[in-house]
Design a protein around this nucleic acid. Structure first.
Lengths: 191, 191
DNA sequence: ACCAGTGATGACAGTCGCTGTCATCAAGGA
DNA sequence: TCCTTGATGACAGCGACTGTCATCACTGGT
């Protein structure tokens, strides 16, 4: 006889998958936390032990992206200008998302369909910008250059990500990021 | 005898003032909607008839700002570049906030102190950016220039607004906006 | 003067997100 | 063997928000 563990392992992972599946099927509002928990075979209380709130289950992985970006900014050559460092960091996320394209699409569709989820996504992006600004200051960049570079960089990422997700020509994310940054440079130079 | 009206007029305004007062005093989380309603002399249900949710009471006036900006973008001279049009619109909000400096400070302090309120503010800003992008497209600006100009413009506004609120030298908002835009131009040119 | 419609409100029940608290029980040492 | 350490379930409770119905001043037409 296998010694049966008291609980199935990875309840957190099961909760995450159940949530995305149910949100995609019936929508965020029409899915209760109790249903997600039941689908994952745990109690509602356990859901809230793993995720601070119902929305957070879709954003638990955002720490990875943050680490990726910050590390890349820090690793950029000393000679790189602030915007060059941020640009390099953004482009370096290409493979990360390229590997998870289907997941990213489904998740993004769920988020786009719900205002509360869009709110949460925005604050994650803002946190990202703030962390990026910190990393730039560590490189010796002063204010307001650090904040503005970070904010502009995130704006570029958002625009590029949306274009990538909906791009019928399936251009690579890194490439779309490069093109979007060039477009930003063009409009700011015109002012 | 005065013919006593059945209800005091302007319950919406009273709710708004009561909410800001209580939020400033005890914080957003430690204030219940029932308390706000009682303070304004109405029922909790009436609060939710005027405001979609507890947070929205602090953002009801944001439509004014939106109108101000969109009108200014549309009114910008045809010869103005997209970023020039946005810059002019942003600067034109100076007097609007200058008149309400104390209110803006108190409101901003309440918002900054609470994560949920920061989320709501971000989505208002994003909506603003989106509306601004629409106005630019009406001027014939193509994508992604319209979105990027709008996003960058809002980023400038956010950075400038925060500097203005905390500025010990009390420089004017319009001036801080101009300086922040110049700083953005500098960092993007460097890339 | 009457009377039907309108609109803002109160009252009340109900759902759901979320929290605090306590008990349970497997696993891993000392 | 005993004690500690998680991870979990069970349950009560608060507060945000909604649906629904009743109330009643006001308004406009007759």
């Amino acid at each position: 006889m296998e010694p049966v563990a008291r609980w199935e392992p990875d309840s957190r992972g099961r909760l995450g998958r159940a949530a995305l599946e149910l949100f995609a099927e019936r929508g965020f509002d029409d899915t209760t936390v109790e249903e997600i928990a039941a689908h994952a075979g745990v109690s509602e209380r356990t859901f809230f032990r793993h995720f601070a709130d119902k929305r957070e289950v879709l954003f638990a992985g955002s720490g990875n992206l943050q680490t990726l970006l910050v590390d890349a900014v820090i690793a950029a050559p000393r000679t790189a200008s602030p915007m060059e460092a941020v640009a390099a960091a953004l482009e370096s996320t290409g493979p990360f998302f390229e590997e998870r394209r289907d997941f990213a699409r489904q998740r993004q569709a769920v988020i786009t369909a719900n205002a509360e989820l869009r709110e949460r996504e925005l604050i994650k992006m803002a946190t990202l910008a703030s962390t990026l600004a910190d990393a730039l200051r560590q490189r010796g960049v002063k204010e307001p250059a650090a904040s503005l570079t970070a904010e502009a960089g995130i704006a570029v990422f958002r625009v590029a990500f949306e274009r990538w997700i909906t791009d019928s020509q399936r251009r690579g994310l890194s490439r779309v990021i490069r093109e979007s940054l060039a477009a930003l440079r063009a409009v700011t130079a015109e002012a």
